[in-house]
């Protein structure tokens, strides 16, 4: 059908039969295949427009919540005596002592970390004073400029190589 439409249109154009040629061109375009929108096209449009939230996220959270509730309900019946047994078997005073030791250990660790941080801070301050000298700043500026130039050249080189695989139409 498409080829016949094309031939018919070309023939009508060559004979200057404008009105019939226009109808034939409509038929030609109408006979050509057209792309099919994806199945979730309208959904994506509404998400992009901010009308609805992403459907999959909302769906997932709903299913996870339902699954969690079902699991809790299913396990509540036999978990309760089990938990009671565990709790009565545990020595409460020992548990409190372990917890206190854990907190103390954590606090000690934080103090050590703070001391280490202070040492790094002192080192950093000394480094900053040294780097504030004109010679150090000049060296830093020159190094930064050199790195930027080299990076741009590399990016341009990579881009030009990639563009050689494309043709313009």
């Amino acid at each position: 059908m498409s080829r016949e439409n094309l031939s018919r249109w070309l023939e009508l154009e060559s004979h200057e039969r404008d009105q019939e040629a226009e109808v034939a061109l409509f038929e030609l375009f109408g006979s050509l295949p057209t792309p099919v929108p994806s199945t979730d096209f309208s959904q994506r449009v509404l998400q992009r427009a901010g009308v609805i939230r992403p459907e999959d996220l909302r769906g997932w959270s709903r299913y996870v919540t339902m699954a969690a509730l079902l699991f809790t309900a299913a396990t509540a019946a036999w978990m309760t005596p089990l938990m009671l047994g565990v709790l009565t078997a545990v020595d409460l005073s020992a548990a409190i002592r372990v917890a206190a030791e854990a907190i103390a250990g954590t606090a000690h660790f934080l103090v050590e970390l703070w001391t280490l941080g202070s040492a790094f801070g002192s080192f950093g301050r000394a480094l900053w004073v040294a780097a504030a000298s004109p010679q150090a700043l000049t060296a830093l500026a020159l190094t930064t400029t050199f790195v930027l130039i080299v990076s741009r050249c590399l990016i341009a080189l990579i881009s030009s190589q990639r563009n050689q695989t494309h043709v313009s139409i």
Binding site: M1, G30, S31, P33, T34, P35, V36
Partner: peptide, 9 residues
């Protein structure tokens, strides 16, 4: 990579 549809007929 068109997913084409058939013409009307």
């Amino acid at each position: 990579s068109w997913e084409v549809i058939e013409a009307p007929e």
